[in-house]
Computed example of a mutant assay.
Amino acid sequence: MKLRAFEAISRALSENGVRYIVAGGLAVNAHGYSRFTADIDLVIALDAGNIVAAFAAMSAAGYEPSLPITAEQFANTSLRQRWIDEKGMRVLNFFSGEHPETSVDVFVYEPFDFEVEFETAMRGELLPGLPVRFVCIPTLIAMKRQAGRARDLDDIQHLQWILDEEQGHG
């Protein structure tokens, strides 16, 4: 994952007014456990206007969906549910010729109450004037438990240590 790609995505999303939260490995890193991640995982508010803005922002940053899916199709709740039920789809992958080493995965469902998490998410600045929200540690742990891969189990352990330290239990 290249910082330049993350900056391009974050800037485009911000400029287009997209409501999003960074999850996955980048959120793990933001909370203090540094480890390699190859992609950018995003959870966006799944209302039609936000989806259309997100697709426009991704395109402006040089990213296109890896499947022939339009913003309007992605905004269709029943169609997204069919992708989940019939194809086991969890994310829509975006790729870029400008940033070939960094793909972006956008969740096709909200893995948590988006409005609540948007308010409680950790806020930071990628660069001065470029705000970014990262999934909070308890939500990130829950997401990683659900995924259950070996890498996620390692992340959970380190995130729990960080959370314990923050809460004065470490």
Rank of each mutant, 00 (worst) to 15 (best):
Q160S: 11
A147K: 04
T37D: 06
L163S: 07
A54M: 07
L159D: 00
G49C: 05
E72L: 11
F118Q: 09
L140D: 05
R35F: 08
P111I: 12
Q167D: 11
R80W: 05
G25C: 04
R149L: 08
Y20F: 15
V106K: 01
I51V: 15
A27S: 15
R82W: 03
R149S: 07
F118H: 12
K144Q: 07
V43K: 00
D154F: 06
P138L: 08
P100A: 06
E101I: 00
A142C: 04
E115I: 12
N29P: 03
F74N: 02
A5Y: 04
I40G: 11
S59H: 08
V106L: 05
A71R: 08
I141F: 03
E101N: 06
D154M: 11
E125C: 07
E64Q: 13
S96N: 03
R82Y: 04
K87R: 14
S78Y: 07
A71H: 09
L3G: 14
I69C: 02
V18P: 01
V28E: 01
V22F: 07
Q81E: 10
V91A: 04
E165F: 10
H99Y: 15
G49K: 07
K2T: 09
E165G: 06
I84W: 00
A75S: 09
V108N: 02
Y33K: 03
D152P: 08
R151M: 07
I162N: 00
A53Q: 03
T77P: 00
M58N: 06
G24K: 01
R11L: 14
Q81C: 05
E119G: 12
W83D: 00
P128T: 00
A38K: 07
F36W: 11
E125H: 10
N50A: 12
D39I: 00
A71D: 03
A53T: 13
V108P: 00
F55W: 05
F107P: 01
E72M: 05
E64A: 12
A27N: 03
F36L: 09
A5C: 14
L153W: 05
P100T: 00
I137N: 01
M58F: 15
E165H: 11
G17Q: 09
R90D: 11
G168Y: 06
T102A: 09
L163Q: 03
R145S: 08
A30P: 06
K2C: 12
N76F: 02
